[in-house]
Design a binder for these strands. Structure first.
Length: 477
RNA sequence: GCUCCCAUCGUCUAAUGGCUAGGACGUCGGGCUUUCAAUCCGGCAAUAGGGGUUCGAUUCCCCUUGGGAGCACCA
């Protein structure tokens, strides 16, 4: 039994998005599950659309997710001679030929075929050109492209996920495999690399199923054995295709929007696949153990943002405040700047311990990392609120004033300024907790909803707490 | 237009030719609670439709409908 070798082969024509990332994940899981090798191949044969920037984005985000590849990534643009040799061999053996038809002619024929209700494909006109005719055309400098001379056969794709499907050669036609000897196209470069890289399982999106038929012809013409194919169902948006316009964000965007790699991985793996057990919460390690290609769903999965958010909340809550602080510092730099801005502007500085406490309070109440301070912004900004907000239920303004005065006295000479001690002391003030804690919360936060006021008081410290209580008292007549 | 693929709660999915079709997210209601969050308990919610095969079909077959993908000198 050969070693399992799989590849993730994106073209660097855009940022890594969720659909691609899931394809990478499934390849990775399959490789790890089988103690195999996971390879990254950059398919940059289209020079005009490929960009280094996108290549970097893809690699950085794969690494961020933890989908490490085992070998150095290869670029198709650096393997031109490999494809050239293959093209020349195919032409030599009359398995491929130069086609001199112009684009205009082809467009016209395509239209005609469509009108007749036929699938649009090349007629094979130039296949019958003699060597002399070809040479004459070349010497005249007539432009050409290279087509595969597709034999009249029916291809059966045996897909590990989708099962068997049949594809007739006459409906495919002699497709183009290269623009020239040194400019290979996808349908040629991909099977060649898969062969020479010893890929045993081609795992990719099901939008490539029809391409598999074409590529199988290349394998046959080259006399190579076929790899296994597994075409993954596509991820769809609520209204059909998951497109950039429909909120399909790049991984980079999810990252700066405050999503955690753990959440994204866990969410993605459940799109089209499910573990045997009902336990959906999985680390990468658990996924590897549980993964099974045959259990992958055939139908496309619709992306459910709310579940992603739920996973994100879950993993955020599980993280230690220290880890979160590091994540904020390292991955969300712009946010650190923003927070530092708050602090400088308001002359509010917190020690590391105080920051950790703030994060602990914030992380319980946020969907995403970048929103972690949103619910505890009162620590960083000057806030104001209407006096009415201080009033708890049916109490009068005077009674609330009394409550705050009692709180002030109780806290003023509290020896041990810790949240549990603060709570303990305030608990004794009244049987109606709301009567004590509600006005204090509003005094300390300016908000009707917040973490417990005694926790906040601990971070603020005695002086700031008393100051804020005095501000509240001044609002009450 | 042609080819291929697909079809279980709103969404992701589990299950078996045979108990009340299970779980998760969401949603609704309740408990806890000073608020929010968290958490706990409970409810609503699905086998697209029509034919077969069978004692029996969500499961196997056919048709319809619906959805998706492909048909580039992109990948």
């Amino acid at each position: 039994m050969n070693e399992v070798r799989v590849r993730f082969a994106p073209s660097p024509t855009g940022r890594l998005h969720l659909g691609n990332a899931r394809t990478a994940l499934f390849n990775y899981l399959f490789a790890r599950k089988n103690n195999g090798v996971f390879i990254l191949r950059i398919e940059d044969t289209d020079k005009s659309r490929s960009k280094k920037e996108y290549e970097d984005d893809i690699i950085n985000n794969l690494l961020w997710l933890g989908l490490n590849f085992n070998e150095d990534p290869i670029r198709q643009s650096e393997r031109i001679s490999l494809y050239q040799t293959a093209v020349e061999k195919l032409i030599e053996e009359k398995k491929a030929y130069r086609c001199f038809c112009s684009k205009e002619e082809l467009d016209l024929k395509r239209q005609e075929q469509l009108v007749r209700g036929e699938p649009p494909r090349y007629s094979g006109l130039c296949r019958s050109l003699s060597v002399e005719q070809v040479n004459e055309n070349i010497s005249k400098g007539k432009p050409y492209i290279i087509r595969l001379a597709v034999p009249d056969q029916t291809i059966v794709i045996k897909d590990l996920i989708l099962g068997e499907s049949k594809w007739e050669a006459k409906l495919i036609g002699d497709f183009i495999i290269a623009k020239s000897e040194t400019e290979p196209l996808y349908h040629l470069a991909t099977p060649i690399d898969d062969h020479y890289q010893g890929i045993t399982h081609v795992i990719r999106g099901s939008d490539h199923l029809a391409n598999a038929a074409k590529q199988i012809f290349v394998y046959k013409m080259m006399g190579w054995p076929l790899p296994e194919f597994a075409h993954l169902p596509l991820i769809l948006g609520l209204e059909g295709k998951l497109s950039k316009r429909q909120g399909a964000k790049s991984l980079s965007e999810y990252r700066t929007d405050g999503f955690l790699a753990e959440a994204l991985l866990n969410f993605m793996v459940l799109l089209g696949w499910h573990p045997k057990t009902d336990d959906e919460l999985m680390s990468l390690k658990t996924m590897i153990n549980e993964f099974n290609l045959a259990a992958i769903q055939k139908k496309g999965a619709i992306f459910n943002q709310k579940k992603l958010i739920w996973f994100n909340r879950y993993y955020l809550r599980k993280k230690e405040p220290r880890e979160i602080l590091e994540l904020i510092d390292s991955t969300i730099e712009y946010f650190k700047v923003e927070v530092d801005g708050y602090r400088a502007k308001n002359n509010l500085f917190f020690s590391d311990n105080e920051m950790l406490k703030i994060i602990e309070l914030g992380k319980e109440r946020t969907d995403t990392l970048n929103q972690i301070f949103a619910n505890v912004e009162f620590f960083f900004i000057h806030f104001d609120y209407p006096a009415d907000l201080l009033i708890w239920q049916q109490y009068s303004s005077l009674e609330i004033k009394k409550s705050l005065e009692q709180t002030r006295v109780a806290l003023f000479d509290l020896d041990d300024w810790r949240s549990d001690k603060i709570k303990e002391k305030l608990d004794r003030l009244s049987d109606d907790k709301g009567y004590v804690f509600w006005p204090l919360r509003v005094a300390l936060t300016g908000k009707p909803a917040s973490p417990p006021p005694f926790e906040i008081a601990e971070v603020f410290g005695r002086a700031k707490t008393i100051e804020l209580i005095d501000r509240a008292l001044a609002k009450l007549k």
